[in-house]
Amino acid sequence: MQASISSPSKTAAQPRKRRLSRARIRRVAPLYLILLPTMLFLVIFFYYPAISGFIHSFTYWDAKSTTWAGLANYEKLFTDKRMLTSFTNLAQLTIFHVVMVLTMPLLAAALVFHIPHQRPRYWLRVLFIFPMVVPMVVVILVWRWMYAMDGGVNILLNAVGLETLARAWLGDRNTVLYAIMFVGFPFVAGLNFLVYLAGLQGIATELLDAAVVDGANSIQRFFRVELPLIRGQVRLLVMLTIIFWLRSFELPLIMTDGGPGWASMVPGLRMYQTVTRDFNLGYGSAIGTVLFVLILVATLVQMRLTRDSSESL
């Protein structure tokens, strides 16, 4: 898709020799005007902040003044023990969700794909997609209630006679990170399910029939035929999951504000707090720059992998 875009389509291209004709200049000149608002928006709201953030990450920056600080912000970032905790928290959240994205939605999508009865298949599909339209903030608030002392998890534990396990899940530094991990259990619904299902639907029926004719049972068919053919989707979703967790911090922000202590802190949330709490914007910019580098690496790896997989198809 990207390749077809970067080279101008044949239908739109004008013959090269007419390049300098007057009529052509008259037609092409207004195009720059048409593109001007786009460029202004992008430069003001993306490029300027990106560059400003990078430069200011080497300064002490507050509302009134900017002082050069060299690498002090980065030094603080990489030597602060609590900051290290926030990175290990982030790593745990990300790894857990990568494992989940490789299993739960794939299992559900493969099962739904093979349901032969049209109506149940349609409704299962709709019901698994539906939670995607519930706003993220709503999901987070409902799950926050689930973890409250009088909330859903403890109610269910009491109902099955495990009241000794009941606790304030978000107030306990031993459980808070796992509680945040489990938001969204069983991790099937939404985009991941949708992408897997679309991938499976894209497989030619002849291939699946051939596998059956060759005597493959459904497990063999899944691992030998289907899974290799949706490798592209698998890689894509793994990268999207990594990028999502690198840049998201709504969950700890709304549920715990990083607490208790720093038990559920992630770097993004710490960056947010440099604006809302200590107004140490240079330090916040440094965290932003580190996150940017991490996301950039993930994106480049993703681009590489998706290009490889489309070549091999």
């Binding site: 003001i44 709201f45 993306f46 300027y48 902040p49 990106a50 400003s52 953030g53 200011h56 920056w61 990028i243 840049r247 998201s248 911090f249 993004g268 960056m271 947010y272 440099t274 604006v275 914007l281 916040g284 910019s285 932003g288 720059t289 996150l291 940017f292 996301i295 950039l296 994106t299």
Partner: peptide
Amino acid sequence: LAIPSVVILVPSFML
């Protein structure tokens, strides 16, 4: 597309 708005949160706020 390679610049998620979250990583430029702080300078965007100043902007």
